[in-house]
Every structure is written in C-alpha cells, then in structure tokens.
Computed example of a mutant assay.
Amino acid sequence: MLCPALRGFGPTRFRSAETPRSSQLAALGRDLLEFLDALDIHRPALIGHDWGARAVANACGLRDRAGSHLVMLSVGYGTNDPQQTLTYVQARNYWYHWFMATPRGQHAVEQDRRGFTRMMWDTWAPANWYTEQDYDQAATAFDNPDWASVVLHSYRHRWGFAPGDPAYAADEASLNPAPVLSVPTLVLHGAADTCNHPDSSTGKERFFSGPYERVVLERVGHFPQREAPENMAGAILRFCEQAS
C-alpha cells in the first residue's frame, strides 16, 4: 500500500519558488496521476479521505480507468462546483471555508495552524475519538512551509474567491461539470459527520455508470479511517472483491 502526501503537507516540496502554491481540486487529481505514472503503477485501487477523496475521484475523472476501484471517504462526488446547491446545515458546517476567505482567517491559518486544525478535530466527530499523541503525530504534516498557502488557496479557489493556476485550466474544464465515472465506486460516510453532512453524499448514482455503493457508518464522524478502521477496511475489502 502506498500513501502519498498531498502537496503542501508533510515532506512535499515545490520544485520551483516560482510555482504558484495552488491547491485547486483539479491539481490534486493531476498530482495523483503523475505519481502513478512516475512509479509505473497501473490501475490500483484508489482510496482517499476528504481532500484525498477528491484527489482520487478527480484522477478518475481526468483519466478513464485510472484505477481498478474508487473509494471515497467522507465526501460525496460532484461537489467541486462553486455554484453547487448547499443546505443551510452544510453552509454552517463550512464556516471555516468562509472564515479562510477573510484576513482574520488567513491569520489563523498562518499563525495558529495547530489551534485552528484542533478545532476541526474536536468538532467534526463524536467526542474522545483521538488521543493527544494521535493529534501531535498528524499535526506534523501541517509544519510544511507551503501548508498555509496551499490550504488558503484550495478553499478560496473552491468558491471562486481566488484564480486558479493556468497550468490546470484544461483539467478544470474536464472536471466541471463533473464527468460520469465508469470505475466501480464505494462511498463510506459517517452518520455523525459534522464536517460534510452525510446527506451531502446522497443521490449521486447518476454520476456512475459502473457498480456504485454508498455505506453510512453509524456513530462515526468525519474520520472513519481513525474512528472505525476495522469496519472501514472490511467494507473496502468486501467491495473490491465483489465489484468489477
């Protein structure tokens, strides 16, 4: 199993100081395709959570048969469009998106990244789902020097508040509107997710021409890979064995 870091997280580095610190969602999909090509990996099962879920889905949208199976955790497909319909509940859940579009939010991301992200961990899932050691270990990924710029751009671009990198203009056009995917797809969503409400992943069957399944995990919040790893792994293995 390979688990690449997203741009701006952990050990990743931009090769040039002149490269825009973009993290538009199309770029995440393109990064994954370039990662697979560099390692000469053909049609692996693609599994991702949140930003990672958008990356694996967009990779499949940019290249047919990029993966043998697609698994999206805590995110519904077809949610890249800045004009998408949002319920008021989901708009409330996305408070941090709007916050980061302001100077005060930018300051929080740049100057208090651990306090800001800790707020997410404490409010996106039922209480006491992680230990201090868990958080400290994960938070080292936020120490990347490009993390703040990448995060701010990703959310600002997502809602049309910042321009994208022209290098990804063709990919953006390919992904909006969201293309129909033929890859067998599984969506796993926590019933107690207060970041992306589970309703946000319902009614997506029209986007899939191949096998498609959605499973809601009871008493699980936004982080099924940490909150219910055995249930999550079991569902993924079952789906990959059955769907073709």
Rank of each mutant, 00 (worst) to 15 (best):
E132V: 10
D171K: 09
A162W: 00
V180K: 11
L152G: 02
P126V: 02
P145I: 04
L86S: 09
A162F: 00
Q133T: 15
P103I: 12
T131S: 12
P126C: 02
A127T: 05
G164F: 03
M119R: 13
F116W: 14
P184L: 14
A125G: 09
V183L: 15
Q137M: 06
G190Q: 08
Q111I: 02
T102Q: 10
R158A: 15
N144G: 01
R92W: 14
T131Q: 05
A108C: 07
E110G: 05
V187K: 13
A148F: 11
E132T: 08
L181K: 06
D146P: 03
R158E: 05
A91W: 11
Y155E: 00
R113P: 02
Y155C: 01
T87K: 04
S182A: 15
R156Y: 02
A148P: 05
V151W: 06
V183R: 15
T140L: 11
M119F: 04
P103W: 14
A127G: 03
H153A: 03
N93F: 06
G164R: 14
Y88C: 04
E110F: 06
Q90A: 11
V187W: 07
W129G: 11
A108D: 03
A173Q: 15
F161C: 10
D143K: 00
L181D: 09
T131K: 06
R114C: 04
A101L: 11
R158N: 06
D165R: 01
A148C: 08
G160M: 11
E172N: 12
P179W: 11
Y155I: 09
P163T: 13
E110W: 05
R158C: 09
T117P: 00
N93C: 07
R92G: 13
V180P: 10
Q106E: 15
V187G: 10
S149H: 01
H107A: 09
E132W: 07
H97W: 14
D146Y: 05
S149K: 05
A178M: 12
A169S: 12
T117G: 01
Y88P: 01
Y94V: 04
D171E: 15
D122P: 01
V151H: 09
A170C: 13
H107K: 11
P166F: 02
Q106H: 12
R113W: 08
V180T: 15
W147V: 02
H107M: 12
R113N: 04
D146L: 03
L188P: 11
D146H: 10
D165W: 00
G164C: 11
A127F: 02
V150A: 07
V151E: 07
S149A: 15
N128T: 02
R104K: 10
R156T: 01
A125T: 15
D122K: 03
W121I: 02
G115M: 10
W147E: 00
V109Q: 08
R114F: 11
A178I: 07
G115S: 08
D171F: 05
W129E: 03
D134I: 07
V183D: 13
D122H: 02
F99V: 08
M100Q: 07
D146M: 07
L188T: 06
N144D: 01
A178K: 04
A167K: 12
A91F: 12
H153K: 03
Y96R: 09
W98I: 07
V183W: 10
L186A: 08
V109L: 13
Y168V: 13
R118L: 13
H189G: 13
D112H: 14
A148G: 12
A148I: 08
G105E: 05
T140Y: 06
